[in-house]
Simulated assay, not measured.
Amino acid sequence: MQLEIRPDPAEVGRARRWARSRLAGSGIQADEPLAETLILLVSELVTNAVVHTGCPAVLLLSLPHAVTDEATVRLEVADRSVRAPVPRCADDDTTGGRGLALVDGLADRWGWSAEGAGKRIWCELDCGAESRDASACGSGAVPYGGAATARAGIAYEAV
């Protein structure tokens, strides 16, 4: 499944809505922490592509056929910029610069690779309970949009 992204900040919201709609048929409920984390990662990676490259991008989402402890969700954003993603150190007063730190803290794995005249940034989320709290893939969901989720010492709420 893929979505073409224009270099426009409004595309970030469209990417989140698209990802949520794909989750609906996957067995991953929108109110599960896994879904909340995935939507936040979509937001961060698409924002980086739109803001830092000024180029169109493609969002790819690979969902498991069946959600099991061994299943993995993969998210990729490919763009036409050769600029490497650079994690930044943002101080308390800075309003940006935390995207890759969030990706690093929330994803089980992430990375990037040069591809032709551009690059691909990817991240993966495991559905297994050992990588996330016990409610990660369906056992004890958190109400969507109403409660914060915590992982690896990071608290967040995807809206």
Rank of each mutant, 00 (worst) to 15 (best):
T47E: 14
T94G: 08
Q2I: 05
V42A: 12
R74M: 14
V58Y: 08
V73D: 01
D79K: 02
C137H: 15
V142W: 07
R83Y: 02
Q29K: 09
V46C: 07
T72W: 12
R20C: 01
A152Q: 15
S135W: 13
G116R: 08
R6Q: 15
A15W: 12
R20Q: 13
L3I: 08
R22W: 11
I28R: 07
L40R: 15
R120F: 01
A15Y: 10
A141S: 15
A136F: 06
V77F: 00
L38A: 01
T47W: 14
H65Y: 07
V58C: 10
D104S: 10
R109K: 12
A35F: 03
P64E: 08
V67G: 08
Q29L: 08
E124D: 15
L100V: 13
G118H: 08
L61G: 04
V46D: 03
D79W: 07
Q2C: 05
E130F: 06
V77L: 03
V82N: 05
A30K: 03
D108V: 00
V42Y: 10
L102H: 15
E130P: 02
P64G: 03
Y144Q: 14
L75M: 10
D93P: 01
A150C: 14
H52I: 11
C137F: 06
V103M: 06
D92K: 13
Q29N: 03
R151T: 04
S135P: 08
C127W: 00
L3W: 07
P87H: 03
S26N: 07
V73I: 14
C127Y: 05
N48A: 04
P143D: 10
E130R: 13
V67C: 05
C137R: 12
I5N: 12
T149W: 05
E4R: 14
D133W: 12
G27C: 14
R17T: 14
G146K: 11
R83P: 00
A19T: 15
V82S: 12
